[in-house]
Structure formats: C-alpha cells, structure tokens
C-alpha cells in the first residue's frame, strides 16, 4: 500500500513541525491551503495556532463546509490545541464559532495565559506505559464530553486527549517534542481507511 497522504491545514500555525514528524514516520505530508488540497488527502491535522484566526480563514476561503463534509464522510481529523477548539462542539463562555465535529465543550486558555504554559508528563495508557512528554501553550481543556467520546488522557483533573470515532483532539503539542507516538497513532487511523477518491 502507498503511504497515506497526511494533510496538515496550512492556513496558519505550526504546520512545519507537524510536517517534520509525519515525514520521519514515512507518511507523505500535504500542506492543505485550498479545496483541491483538501480533496486529495486521506486525513487532516489541524495544527496549533490561533482558533479565532483559523475559523475566519476557513470561512473566508470557503473551506469550512467541504472540511466538515469530508470528516462526516469518515476522513480522520486530529486537532492539536487550536485544531481541537475549531473541531469542538462549542467553546465555554465564549461566543465563538466552531465546526462541531466532536462532541466536546472546550475552555480556551483554561490553564491561564502564556505564563501558565508548561511542559508535563502524561499517562496515556493507549500509547503504552512510557509517560508522554506534553507541551501545553495557552492550552484549552475539555470541560464536557459526550457519551461517545473516549478520554485518553487527563491533566490537572481535565481531559486533554480525546477521541470520538474518526476525530481526535489534544490540548497539547506532540509536534513540538521528539516523541512521535501520537502521530503514529493518528497514522494508524488513516491506514484503516481507503484512499480518498480524487
């Protein structure tokens, strides 16, 4: 089987960091900026960045609707920090548009502003016994999750790694570490799928 085409939404954020890890794992990264980029990828990472910026750019460049359609059609999606906010059902206490792709309510900047940004070690049984190096930057946490949502890790009493079917979200940034286990986990979700029709 050909290596899967792993898309990284490239409107804004730490795109290069995801591309580097995907390449190291033998996947073929595709920077997704247009509708035609989106149509050809097998899965999509929405990277770290600013959620208010990216939701506006998705709408402005008419990518929101086709993105939602592909994910509802089964395409795997992983949001890191900003990406998880964009994919969430809603944002607690803020009137902020989201795409409603995963049944979670997130709280933005939940741990605090930049001074509260931190590195930590997380227990993630789904990834094995070795603790996961996690980097939180003005990070959100998951305040509520629906019955179909699996919470794969918590930090300070709140969910920070979730999955519901083909959609997963992390409050933290595996792309900034040397540990590729979360990317490898996501690529296994892609390999379980047929190549998208061109």
């Amino acid at each position: 089987m050909d290596a899967p085409l792993a898309g990284v939404l490239a409107l804004q954020g730490d795109v290069d960091e995801h591309v580097r890890v995907l390449e190291s794992l033998g996947a073929v990264p595709v920077r997704v900026k247009t509708r035609s980029d989106l149509d050809r990828v097998d899965g999509l990472i929405v990277p770290g960045g600013e959620s208010t910026t990216v939701i506006r750019l998705l709408d402005r460049f008419e990518l929101a609707e086709p993105l939602v359609a592909r994910v509802r059609g089964g395409m795997p999606l992983w949001g890191t920090c900003m990406g998880m906010i964009v994919a969430a059902n809603d944002v607690v206490e803020l009137d902020q548009r989201t795409l409603g792709l995963i049944d979670i309510s997130v709280r933005r900047n939940a741990f605090g502003r930049q001074l509260a940004s931190e590195e930590a070690l997380l227990d993630v049984p789904a990834l094995g016994p070795e603790p996961l190096h996690a980097i939180f930057i003005r990070a959100p946490w998951i305040e509520r999750s629906g019955p179909g949502v699996e919470v794969l890790a918590t930090h300070k009493g709140h969910g920070v790694f979730v999955r519901e079917g083909n959609v997963m979200g992390t409050s933290f940034h595996p792309e900034l570490t040397r540990d590729p286990r979360v990317h490898a986990y996501f690529l296994r979700m892609l390999e379980g799928r047929e190549r998208a029709a061109a």
Binding site: A10, L11, Q12, G13, D14, V15, D16, E17, G48, G49, E50, T53, C81, M82, Q114, L115, A116, S117, E118, E119, A120, L121, P131, H133, I135, F136, I137, R138, H155, K156, H173, L176, T177, R178, D179
Partner: peptide, 29 residues
C-alpha cells in the same frame, strides 16, 4: 532545549520550549 527527563509530572512553566512554542503557534499570522 529542555531535557525531557527533568520534567516533573506536575508540570514546568517558563521553559525555553514553551517560550519559543508560543511564537511557533503564531506562524503564518
């Protein structure tokens, strides 16, 4: 720049990684 081994499970703020990290999140903006 920060050794992963030295990170306490409770978390470490103000590291060079999180300082540089916020700028990485601003890229393309």
């Amino acid at each position: 720049t920060d050794g992963e081994r030295g990170i306490p499970a409770a978390g470490q703020t103000g590291t060079m990684t999180v300082k540089r990290g916020l700028a990485q999140m601003l890229k393309g903006g």
